[in-house]
């Protein structure tokens, strides 16, 4: 196994209260220094609730956001993080909202041709052949090519989004909530398509979702994000079957499930910490039933809990 993607200390802070000149009033740390490795051919799931920094992380990986600190390496090569075009051929992105990721004033063919023309400088005839191949691979009819985005349903548009990402011929795909805008019956179609493509083309996926069950169904490993940091990472079945971090446990217990009695997994009415005024120590401390005094003073680091499973917790379960 070799590394497809390696992040070292990758972080992003956003300025708050910008001024025309001089430094901003404050910085919000959307992603705290994060290190991750994704192996070739692997699917790494990233789960977390809104505001946990998962989309910020993903956008940095494809160069749409410049990181504040840290490094990105793809297949062992460090990336120039300032130019998105250098990313295009190595790593591609599938967006959450399939319709708004397609320019309403271009035909599907024009959209599909862009990566072939600009990333691969392919001549016209070769482009047409390549587009036919890709469309066959994602089960789309070629007659769709002359239509405009608004003529498609969400599921079809998402297939087109996937087809565009494939056209760039990248080995790594970042899938940012690719099915959360879709209905369940269509969601299953898209998820199965993704897993077929991966097997056929030997792709590596970073699969971002808020839905634990979906992540579990598609991922080899999973990373749980809370307040901009990875709090637990490991093989999917182990992480969800026996969570070490209390937040992972809370997430797993909160998902509504047929045959489980309804009770709030949290007794207290809790809220996320304020990013402008981050708490000292562990960010989850205020919601944590297992908090110990050390949690208030010292930010926990990721530590190996068992083979392959790491959690950032002073009092792991």
């Amino acid at each position: 196994m070799t590394e497809a993607l390696k992040l070292t200390g990758l972080s992003k802070s956003f300025p708050v209260g910008k001024r025309l000149f001089g430094p901003p009033k404050a910085m919000v740390r959307a992603v705290r220094p994060t290190s991750l490795v994704v192996d070739k051919g692997e699917t790494l799931g990233i789960v977390g609730e809104s505001g946990c920094g998962k989309t910020t992380l993903a956008r940095m990986l494809v160069g749409l956001l410049a990181p504040t600190g840290g490094r990105i390496e793809i297949e062992g090569e460090p990336l120039n993080t300032t130019n998105p075009a250098t990313f295009g051929r190595k790593i591609q992105y599938v967006f959450q909202d399939p319709i708004s990721s397609l320019n309403p004033r271009k035909t599907i063919r024009q959209i599909m041709e862009a990566p072939l023309r600009h990333l691969h400088r392919m001549p016209k005839a070769a482009r047409a052949t390549r587009i036919s191949e890709i469309f066959a691979a994602v089960n789309l009819r070629e007659e769709f090519l002359e239509r405009y985005p608004h003529e498609f349903s969400g599921g079809q548009a998402q297939r087109i989004g996937i087809a565009r990402a494939l056209a760039a011929d990248a080995r790594i795909l970042i899938l940012d909530e690719p099915v959360s805008a879709l209905d369940v019956s269509v969601q299953a179609q898209v998820l199965n398509l993704l897993s077929d493509l991966k097997a056929k083309l030997g792709l590596t996926y970073l699969f971002i979702s808020h839905d634990l069950a979906v992540v579990e169904a598609v991922s080899d490993r999973v990373a749980v994000l809370y307040f901009g940091s990875v709090v637990e990472i490991g093989p999917t079945d182990q992480v969800f079957a026996a969570p070490h971090h209390p937040y992972t446990k809370l997430l797993a217990d909160s998902a509504p499930k047929v045959g489980r009695a309804l009770k709030a997994p949290e007794a207290r009415e809790t809220e996320l910490p304020n990013p402008l005024d981050p708490p000292q120590g562990c960010a989850f401390r205020a919601r944590c039933p297992y908090a110990i005094p050390r949690c208030a003073t010292e930010e926990p680091a990721l530590e190996m809990q068992q083979a392959g499973v790491w959690a950032a917790c002073h009092n792991p379960q």
């Binding site: 295009g88 992105y93 967006f95 959209i111």
Partner: peptide
């Protein structure tokens, strides 16, 4: 809009 991000990832420059 996301389609502008997508165009960037398709290798298009600012002017294009």
């Amino acid at each position: 809009k996301e389609f502008v991000d997508a165009a960037r990832l398709s290798g298009m420059g600012d002017l294009r």
